[in-house]
Design a protein around this nucleic acid. Structure first.
Lengths: 158, 158
DNA sequence: TCATAATAGATGCGTTTGTATCTTTGTCCA
DNA sequence: TGGACAAAGATACAAACGCATCTATTATGA
């Protein structure tokens, strides 16, 4: 197990380093373009995917895997910036729904463009086509395998 | 570019999700065992690698890719916990040197064991041997390629 | 139906983080 | 040699975060 530990460790550290390398570049590109942080884009994408009825905050929370107060405050800011809209929802008076505004969708698009540019430069550029495909494939299987088994004790179910 | 963007995006998101999935599990395992956060282990490992003279805080900063104040405070805590030791250094009176104490090395070992256990359960278990090898290989090439080119504007050089 | 439990969401509070700045010391070169 | 500039490290301050808690509403079930 000592030998397995070493190899495992190395590949895990590479995974972590690669991720933070790319994430840092994307965040820097967004900040450089005067755009909000990457979570906003994830939120916009979820809202878009959800379509017309919009999303309940708790649904967005699960999609983004954030703490509940984090979503609460994120939505505060998005609404405060005029990029998301709060709608009352009839069937549950505890909650409400969010949708993106036109301004929000515009920002979403600019963020997406910036992200793709950063990914092209800092991610794709360092992988061959074959490597990119293989990586995607392995990670896809990894994620479905891990989701199938070990999701009982995630940090976000309280 | 629209099509390239979509595939790139998907694989990047998978990379990010896989990393945070594993990182969350390791952090949870450490916390569950009453051990410090993962950065401490990275710091211990760097100190060990550095050997006797120890490390200057700025060297540790570069190794860990953290903000300078973060390292300053991390070392505060490690020293405060009796797990690291501050030594004056003669050749530069602006700075000093850190080394791990026996207590620190003991904690390092327990953390390493905990980490390997978490990796075995939450990382290795979801990959075949071949996938693990391929992943390691691709990420290794990715990292050296990215380090070779795009390290001019990292977020940590001020 | 009414009491109890569970869920949605907000907020208060202590901690952590990043940014900027400050002090001290070392380096460079005219 | 001295005077400007750069580097090491600490710290002040504000923003962000996590945890716990609170209120309001819905679901459960005796």
């Amino acid at each position: 197990m000592a030998e397995i530990g070493k190899k495992t460790l190395r590949s895990w550290r590479r995974l972590a380093r690669a991720q933070s390398f790319v994430a840092d570049r994307i965040e820097a590109a967004l900040k450089g373009a005067g755009l909000p942080a990457l979570v906003w884009l994830a939120a916009f994408d979820e809202l878009e995917k959800a379509g017309e009825p919009g999303l309940r905050p708790f649904e967005l929370q699960r999609a983004l895997e954030l703490e509940q107060p984090a979503v609460s405050r994120l939505l505060d800011k998005m609404i405060g910036a005029g990029m998301a809209e709060r709608r009352e929802c009839d069937d549950d008076r505890r909650g409400w729904t969010v949708t993106a505004t036109d301004s929000g969708r515009k920002t979403q698009e600019r963020m997406a463009t910036t992200q793709v540019a950063a990914l092209t430069e800092h991610y794709l550029a360092h992988l061959s086509d074959k490597q990119a495909r293989t990586l995607d494939e392995i990670l896809g299987e990894f994620l479905s395998s891990s989701r199938a088994s070990g999701n009982e004790n995630s940090k976000n179910d309280h």
